[in-house]
């Protein structure tokens, strides 16, 4: 596709452009537009996850499980084990939250392993000018998740410590109770609090964006001309795909564990 007008740079830019409605944004921090591709793919994968697990959950028996049920249970017990290690309270909300994060993020990351030109090509046949298949390579997606986690953190901080207790902690930890230290305490806590969703979102986004970019760059070799570059592209694509299986799993796992850690920290008293 590098043979399209504009060459390789245009090819990359094309691949990094979201299908944005109602109009392409003109930069700036915020615009009232929507990345239709991110929403569609994440929603489809979310529904896939929900339906899949719901169907298995609906027919779950305490007897000998089928292979499908056994797999779902395996995932659930893995997640539950991770949550149990970190959080020593009622897991009825944190457990499913971690499960949702893990499976959903993994599925969205997995879109990175589909051939980088496949979905944009199908989209183009359907008359869509652009289509980015990996929602987790969209800052809006990762921040949506991390901000939701952040709101849950605040909610559970209030729930576990009460309004007074939480405010007391914000203004008196970690330096001390002296009124002169209230402001420094609060400033430090604010930075600590805000760094959590930012780092959570940026880590996942950075990994997925970089991974996608490497795929695009390698794919560029296919049409760079010459059988040697083509072969190099094939080998490179295969190697990076295999390596990327590790990355998407680890990133999904890290996002889940950090979510659990942050929310369980919100329960802790200082």
């Amino acid at each position: 596709m590098a043979s399209e007008p504009g060459g390789f740079t245009a090819y990359i830019q094309h691949h990094l452009t979201f299908l944005t409605l109602p109009h392409v944004s003109h930069g700036g921090f915020w615009s009232w537009t929507v990345h239709v591709d991110s929403i569609t793919v994440s929603l489809a994968l979310g529904v896939l996850f929900s339906l899949w697990f719901w169907l298995k959950a609906r027919k779950a028996t305490a007897g000998v499980p089928g292979k499908g049920q056994a797999f779902v249970e395996l995932v659930l017990e893995f997640v539950d084990g991770q949550v149990k290690d970190v959080f020593h309270g009622d897991r009825r909300v944190l457990g499913p939250l971690a499960l949702t994060v893990f499976v959903w993020v993994f599925l969205m990351n997995f879109m990175d392993l589909l051939p980088v030109d496949l979905i944009p090509l199908i989209a183009e046949k359907c008359g869509l000018s652009h289509f980015r298949a990996v929602p987790t390579a969209d800052l809006n997606m990762t921040f949506a998740m991390s901000i939701t986690v952040f709101l849950l953190m605040i909610f559970y901080s209030f729930k576990a410590k009460g309004f007074g207790g939480y405010m007391h902690e914000l203004f008196t930890a970690p330096f001390g109770k002296h009124p002169l230290l209230w402001l420094p305490n609060f400033a430090l806590n604010l930075v600590e609090m805000l760094s959590k969703p930012v780092s959570l979102a940026m880590r996942l986004f950075g990994n997925m964006y970089a991974g996608e970019l490497v795929f695009i760059l390698i794919a560029g070799l296919f049409s760079a001309g010459g059988i040697a570059l083509y072969s190099l592209g094939l080998v490179g694509y295969a190697v990076w795909s295999i390596f990327h299986i590790l990355i998407i799993s680890i990133q999904a796992f890290i996002f889940m564990v950090l979510t659990v850690v942050y929310i369980s920290m919100a329960h802790d008293h200082h």
Binding site: S38, A144, I147
Partner: peptide
């Protein structure tokens, strides 16, 4: 560059 996708995804996430 943020946009309304953020809000939509938050709603989807909360629903999930």
């Amino acid at each position: 560059e943020f946009n309304a996708t953020l809000i939509g995804e938050m709603i989807v996430f909360a629903f999930l």
